[in-house]
Design a protein around this nucleic acid. Sequence first.
RNA 1: GCGGGAGUAGCUCAAUGGUAGAGCUCUAGCCUUCCAAGCUAGAUGUUGCGGGUUCGAGUCCCGUCUCCCGCUCCA
Length: 515
Amino acid sequence: MSDTPAASVMDAIVSLCKRRGFIYPASEIYGGIRGFWDYGPLGVLLKNNIRDDWWRNMVECPPIGPDGQPVEIVGLDSAIIQHPKVWHASGHVDSFNDPMVDDRETKGRYRADHVKVLVPRDGQGNSFAFVEDREAAEKKIKRDARRNPTDYDEVILTTLPPEAYARVVGPDTRTPGTLTEPRAFSLMLDTYPGPIRDEDNKTYLRPETAQGIFLQFKNVVDTTRVKVPFGIAQVGKSFRNEVTPRNFIFRSREFEQMELEFFCPPDDALMWYEFWRAQRMAWWQSLGIDPSHLCYRDHDADELAFYSKATVDIEYKYPFTAPGFGELEGIAHRGDYDLSQHAKHSGQKLDYFDQDLQLRLKEQGTSAEEIKTRSRYVPNVIEPSSGLTRGVLVLLCEAYRRDESRPSGEYLAFKPSLAPVKVGIFPLVNKEGMPEIASKLYMDLRQKYTCEFDAKQSIGKRYARMDEIGTPYCVTIDGDTLKDQTVTVRDRDSATQQRINIDQVGSYLNERLSG
RNA sequence: GCGGGAGUAGCUCAAUGGUAGAGCUCUAGCCUUCCAAGCUAGAUGUUGCGGGUUCGAGUCCCGUCUCCCGCUCCA
């Protein structure tokens, strides 16, 4: 990428995406709607190409496991809307509803349940709030209230009645009464299935596809021949009320995820976590992303969800985070949290009887009692969860090139197999039999590849157009084709040409576009 | 949600309170034997939206929406 400032690189990418039909603002003719984007003719091709590659490498041709055998993964497409109890069981209703308070004076914002308050025991005078720095609050007590901190009790802000807020001094100010009352931030989008809008009907648009997988774990085990360890993969839309949708499609309120829930025996969970951690990085690199633009970020212990034993993010160096990185995929060791939660809330048994393990333990001479307890368990889950729409953004950022020496000035260097359009087919001149030959070649190639036939304007303009949308190859029929059946194939990245026989075009493309 | 900046053709941008423009793109035709060539013609605007001030508003004022930057948030 050039040394242009990050903002201008992003602006150029956003502009190119609209100009050439990759991504448009949603509802644009009505002024747009915050956090939503539409994928245009080329955008949907690019997105589908990433999705199909993921599906192929997960479900149809999964990687080879640690034991040398291909891992077993099946697909699923669950509903976006599920029973409301699902989201209580999963923890989303509680954890996605953090009450927040704002400080009108300092413009700070705090999670209300993280704010603690020192309240005078005799009820006289102001109270002093703090988040972590209790000493600062005590200092204010001594200096501003001229009292002893031991005269105060520590309470959580949310336990105070609303009328008490007027006498609370915010964490980063010395004036009382600047804090707003806690406001709930619901990070899930509500919906009311059924013709009558009734609070009893209230449920949510899923904030992740994963829960649908857990809900069908039992059905998949009972109705297909899978055996633990195995995975269930799903691609689909998810919805979150992000406080601040920002950075093009990076953080939007409707987005698309590619998630795998991999179920394994508790004893092997750490091994599978390491396995997927490596596999997922390898997959992103296989899409043509420069390894130096990707990194792992292990979550610190205090950052982990309470049920997670380990979580790592795969991050990408986006133009708007550079030189830092931003999240692309998370791989979480979720323990047995999800299945246990749903077992508890639904009253259904979601454990698994492991016959293979039973047999192995028997061979090892384990006691009958131990075999019994160890071969029935709630599987642990390793969850590689990636953003498909973030993947689109990453490939656009990664492919974007500036080259002033080119007619187009900029082009997209997608890995050929992922490019929205694979081949441009042009008659050099729109006469003398060339259009007919080009048209015939187009009709032939379109059976296998996304192709564009273009006979308009100068050849340079046509090449430039193809550069801008990232088409890796252009086949041109010229005067020589009429004499010796040869055509030129132009390579996008080098802008050089090669002359081959028209009959070899299919195999030429085959070699370069498969994988 | 807060603060700052911005919004004019598909894109990039002009226009002292006085007739809304340019370049590129795009379309049609001519021309053209390899990199946005040339010629001709054409299309695209309720100046984000809604009010107000004014004889007259793209321009000034108010509201609102969207985008960008910084906070905040992102189990």
